[in-house]
Simulated scan of single mutants.
Amino acid sequence: MKLLNRLYLTALTLSSLEATSAFVARPHLPSTSVSLHGKKDSSDEVVQQQAFSAGSFIEFEEKKRIHVGKIDAVEHKSSGGARYTVIDSEGKKFNIADKSVRYSMACPNSPGQANKLYEEFISAQDTPMKSLQESLDVSPELLEMAWEEATEELDGEAHADLTPSSFVELVHAHAASAMEKYLTWKLLQSDMAHVFFKEIKSHGRIVAFRAKPRKAVDNAKDMFCRDQDNEDNELCFV
């Protein structure tokens, strides 16, 4: 009888514990779900394009026409791209994208020097090829010598890139002025210069000139001199 009573009490105790456990608060487990509206990843932030500063003198293209002017204001689009308000040499205002800028030069701090440089820049825009050579004192023979000097120590797949500054230093052994750089930049885009150098671009702008291999130069020179317009060019007699 005592044994039956003990079994009965044990059963009641277990039943009571199970019933109580149903109401015990369970520890809160952290959620592993990811919010769909979380904070934007910092890697998605828009990076603003490096822009030319206001006041810079530039050569730019607008509707297939070439102008020179001064940057009056700089702004960035929501995508990060730069745009410029430019006033050209005739006082006309343009709103252009960064890719429209072909060449730029810094404006001197002195108003007198700035005005002088800007006037020279305007005058140089349409300089004929012959005048470019005379202004820079670069004959066809000297151009070829510069190419030879640039490629003299190259071997294998290496190549030589010249900027307008390094070209002037190579040819005339002095640091190039702002106008010398611009005139050289124009000269090295001529048909004659293309015999020896290939244009190198960055962000759509011509920034350097790569010396061609000798075989390519020989072929280009032959084609250049076959053109009737160039038959009297000094390069064809070098």
Rank of each mutant, 00 (worst) to 15 (best):
F60G: 09
E62H: 09
H67Y: 08
H67G: 09
G69H: 01
K70N: 14
A73D: 09
V74N: 08
V74C: 10
S79M: 00
G80A: 05
A82Q: 10
R83F: 06
Y84T: 04
Y84M: 03
E90K: 05
E90R: 11
K92H: 04
N95W: 06
A97E: 07
K99C: 07
V101P: 05
V101T: 14
V101I: 15
S104V: 11
C107R: 03
N109I: 13
G112S: 15
Q113V: 15
A114C: 15
F121S: 05
S123P: 06
Q125Y: 02
M129S: 05
K130P: 02
L136E: 12
V138A: 09
P140T: 03
E141W: 12
E141I: 08
E144Q: 04
M145H: 05
E148S: 03
E148D: 13
E149M: 05
D155H: 14
E157C: 09
A158N: 14
A158Q: 12
A158R: 15
A160D: 10
L162H: 13
E169Y: 12
V171R: 12
H172C: 06
H172Y: 07
A173T: 08
A175G: 14
A175R: 11
S177H: 11
A178N: 03
M179F: 07
K181A: 06
K181D: 09
Y182I: 00
L183G: 01
L183S: 11
T184L: 09
W185K: 03
S190D: 01
D191F: 00
D191T: 01
V195I: 08
V195R: 14
E199M: 12
E199N: 11
I200K: 12
K201S: 13
K201N: 05
S202C: 14
S202V: 02
S202Y: 12
